[in-house]
């Protein structure tokens, strides 16, 4: 098993702390390394990795720490976005203490992939806010300190109807975000109804492969990670 990156510097009051879902993505990427290594085999150009909603930065730091194991090559370029600028700073710190800080381009504050140039991203990784909730928090800062903390943590968790409102926005732009060789890794919980979602995506020409799952409750997998690509 590959070591888990150090994120002990994060402030759990303002940044989502690595949890079971984060670790499942690390395991899923590790399990899918043969696919990644063959798809991005050198001399193909350096893959550009975009993580959405980096939070602590644990996933990006994991990728930066293990390029050869995961991609079969030492060169990657990593970009991250998060709507929470405190999380962006935490991500920068997590990347800085990996063995390969040269692989990171930037961590920027943004709404998902809105500032990313079309068709540049080779690998998109997203641990979304997937918990069903009455609504999705606004992106604007709250004046009150306590309310602001509450908003920042809700941004990392609350996914609106079926917990899918944010992930659906990523799907809408997926064709525009990914490059011709692009692949997305996205986590789902059972409430997101992943089987229905995948059927819908397949109807739009995407291939969907389950690359990780965790915990069964009454026969239903609680968390799954899917590779979505063309």
């Amino acid at each position: 098993m590959l070591p888990t990156p150090d994120t002990s510097h994060i402030d759990p009051d303002t940044t989502y702390e690595p949890n079971t879902d984060s670790y499942l993505i690390l395991d899923s990427l590790t399990a899918d390394a043969p696919f990644l290594s063959s798809r991005f085999k050198a001399p193909a150009p350096t893959p550009l990795i975009l993580e959405l909603g980096t939070g602590s930065g644990i996933i990006s730091a994991f990728i930066a720490s293990n390029p050869v194991t995961l991609f079969g090559r030492p060169d990657l370029l990593l970009l991250g976005t998060d709507a929470n600028s405190i999380a962006c700073a935490a991500t920068n710190q997590s990347l800085k203490i990996t063995p390969n800080p040269h692989l990171q381009l930037a961590s920027v504050t943004a709404d998902l992939a809105t500032p990313i140039r079309p068709n540049e991203v080779d690998v998109l990784v997203f641990n979304p806010p997937y918990v069903p909730s009455p609504d999705v928090p606004k992106l604007g800062k709250h004046e009150d300190g306590y309310e602001e903390q509450f908003r920042l943590l809700a941004l990392a968790c609350d996914g609106g109807a079926d917990g899918m409102e944010v992930t659906r926005r990523v799907f809408e732009g997926l064709g525009e975000t990914l490059s011709a060789r692009g692949v997305a890794y996205i986590l789902f919980c059972a409430s997101n109804k992943p089987d229905e979602v995948m059927e819908e995506l397949q109807g739009k020409g995407w291939s969907c492969v389950k690359v990780g799952d965790l915990g069964k409750k009454g026969g239903i997998e609680k968390l799954t990670v899917w590779r979505i690509y063309k």
């Binding site: 550009l48 370029l77 970009l79 990171q104 381009l105 930037a106 961590s107 920027v108 943004a110 709404d111 809105t114 500032p115 990313i116 140039r117 540049e120």
Partner: peptide, 13 residues
């Protein structure tokens, strides 16, 4: 942020 970042980003509008 590194300078090369500008190679992969654009206006969010």
């Amino acid at each position: 942020m590194k300078i090369l970042t500008t190679n992969y980003i654009t206006c969010a509008v």
